[in-house]
């Protein structure tokens, strides 16, 4: 059977081939389709009731970085992504910065959009399972994302405001092998989204001001992605949920899900 054989289209948004399924077997590396598949599962199943959470397809991220050269392109993309309705955005980072350059590493950039109006701000948090290897790619992506975000929101509100600092999460769980970064990206996305939904509580709090620059200096490694005074999102439990063993288990669960979906759809 060919690796290119299409097993199914998940929600008409994510194509899975037999080859992609095999990538969920360690020690294979995950590709952008694997990432996109699980992101769509998070969107449509795990966080179905929360359309304010945006899980960006890696291909859309690279499109934003490389293909969107002028403001018109960025505005169109922002509109298509309905960025104005989102409160948190999960952005997969890959170190393939140019068309033909090799890519080796995935990490997670989280953007909290903050509230509307005057108190408007935004915050970036970078979760890297390999001691900050993707730092420059994350900063570059954050800058372009911020450009897109400010274009959409209207320059009068945040005119001239510089791209917020990208806060590296110091105690981000570290992978113990040379193949799991894609899984860490998936595991951390799920866990941070879960924290945001549970700890972020009501819409009113989440719409409040988000951690301002320097606010999370004390207690380094703690990321306050939920908004509002006194409402902090504590990521210290991340290590316990995203570990080598947990990621091995998540690999098995995702592969099993793909096999189930394939069985249901194919003749």
């Amino acid at each position: 059977m060919s690796a290119e054989e299409v097993l199914f289209y998940y929600q008409d948004e994510a194509q899975m081939t037999r080859g992609d399924l095999h990538l969920f077997k360690a020690p294979a590396w995950l590709n952008d389709r694997c990432i996109n598949f699980y992101f769509r599962v998070l969107e449509h199943e795990e966080f179905a009731g929360r359309p304010d959470l945006l899980f960006l397809d890696p291909v859309v991220v690279s499109c934003m970085l490389i293909q969107c050269t002028d403001e018109e392109d960025l505005k169109e993309l922002a509109g298509g992504l309905r960025l104005d309705t989102r409160s948190i955005v999960f952005i997969p980072i890959n170190d393939a910065e140019e068309f033909f350059s090799g890519c080796t590493h995935w990490s997670l950039l989280v953007f909290c959009t903050g509230g509307k109006g005057e108190g408007k701000s935004g915050s970036f948090f970078h979760f890297d399972s390999s001691c900050g290897r993707n730092e420059s790619a994350a900063m570059k992506t954050a800058a372009q994302f911020w450009r897109m975000f400010t274009i959409l929101e209207g320059r009068d509100v945040i005119a001239g405001r510089q791209c917020p600092r990208v806060d590296a999460i110091n105690d981000c769980p570290q992978q113990e092998n040379g193949y799991d970064c894609g899984m860490y990206l998936l595991g951390m996305t799920k866990y941070v989204a879960h924290l945001f939904v549970t700890q972020g509580s009501g819409v009113a709090t989440r719409r409040g001001s988000v951690a301002k620059e320097g606010e999370n200096d004390e207690g380094s490694g703690t990321c306050s992605v939920a908004g509002g005074k006194g409402s902090r999102l504590d990521t210290t439990g991340l290590g316990a949920h995203v570990s080598s063993d947990a990621m091995g288990e998540l690999r098995r669960r995702i592969a099993q899900k793909i096999e189930q979906l394939a069985g249901r759809v194919s003749p």
Partner: peptide
């Protein structure tokens, strides 16, 4: 993303429309 089973009509493509193409991305280590 556009998929191979879709047609121009289904995608509501018009003359001179632009499609972007990108390479697969991989990562592990």
């Amino acid at each position: 993303r556009i998929e191979k089973h879709q047609t121009s009509a289904e995608l509501e493509l018009e003359d001179e429309d632009q499609i972007d193409v990108m390479l697969e991305q991989l990562g592990g280590c």
